[in-house]
Design a binder for these strands. Sequence first.
DNA 1: CTTGCCAGTGAACGATGTTCAAGACATTTT
DNA 2: AAAATGTCTTGAACATCGTTCACTGGCAAG
Lengths: 185, 185
Amino acid sequence: MGRRDEGREELRLRLLETAERHIAAQGLAGLKARELTAEAGVALGSIYNAFENLDLLVVHVNARTLARLDAALREMAPDTLAPAERMVALARGYVRFALDNRRLWAALFDHRLPEHVAVPEWHREAHVRILQLIAGPLARLRPDLSVEQLALRARTLFAAVHGVVHLSSPASSSARPGRCSRRRS
Amino acid sequence: MGRRDEGREELRLRLLETAERHIAAQGLAGLKARELTAEAGVALGSIYNAFENLDLLVVHVNARTLARLDAALREMAPDTLAPAERMVALARGYVRFALDNRRLWAALFDHRLPEHVAVPEWHREAHVRILQLIAGPLARLRPDLSVEQLALRARTLFAAVHGVVHLSSPASSSARPGRCSRRRS
DNA sequence: CTTGCCAGTGAACGATGTTCAAGACATTTT
DNA sequence: AAAATGTCTTGAACATCGTTCACTGGCAAG
């Protein structure tokens, strides 16, 4: 009984890591079910044994990326720094991460779930953790703000920085799900 | 001879307006070649008589949206205003436009061309016109900046405002090219 | 009236994500 | 040990997508 669950977790991890490598190399648009499973050495249908569908697999990859971003930011902006310096370090850390992980970072916001399909709760929490990273030093800079105001302002700050990084990134102009281009006769 | 070209332009316009309506109603992800042509009352292949492919058609729709945004901003931020007030009016105008044209506005940055396919020059110019709208009052506020610094700062300002509007918009969580969901037996 | 031409048409194609009957394998029961 | 009973894995089949191209109908020129 236990071995089956281990095998399942092993399969999930194998697909996750293969998909991550593939996205990092080819971009989110280059991730096809058949290539992915061939590269991972498993059958096409195995995706649906390990995950609900390919979209959810991508969400899992994005969650990993978000966790790595979170770790990188915590390392670059330790709480030994003064609040203002910490904010700057967070912004610089974000830029650095985006440059060092271009395609995986792009996948974070390029990917869209089908309409009316909610983002899993555990993935939302990963976002919240990033925002709390900003809200921390912000609270010390602005002790007058309420918790709600703090959360809103952290979101706004992140959005502004992200917008600048995003528009400056060359990654924004590339990658689309492949079109058909049949060979000419 | 002349009538043929008129007919071609007529077809382009028909497809353009139908696609625009469809995107405004269903979102960019809901735009399928077959639905579009059926709705426009033309054959499937007609798309490729009028445009290079569906992607380029979308770029044309986006160009129209960008032109409407440009016009809306020029109306909301006339040069009779003081520079600082004009900047604020531009930002408010952008938010207003995004709210009033959610899906068409979302299509502006949701849409991605296939890799290695360059954005047409005339579409880049439409972007530049928006940025010049920002650079105008900015130049009066900061006469010390060079033209290049002005352009860069206008881009950054736009990106920051856009990032905030984007992340606050509910449109960011919806819309993906439809997946298969075969009916159960 | 005949001829040539070309824009419009839609069946066919390759690619894609997803499903599911059937086989492979392990575990438990007799 | 053999049989029974699940569970996981597999890949052919399916629906749907953008795109192509041989055909055709109607207009203009001869």
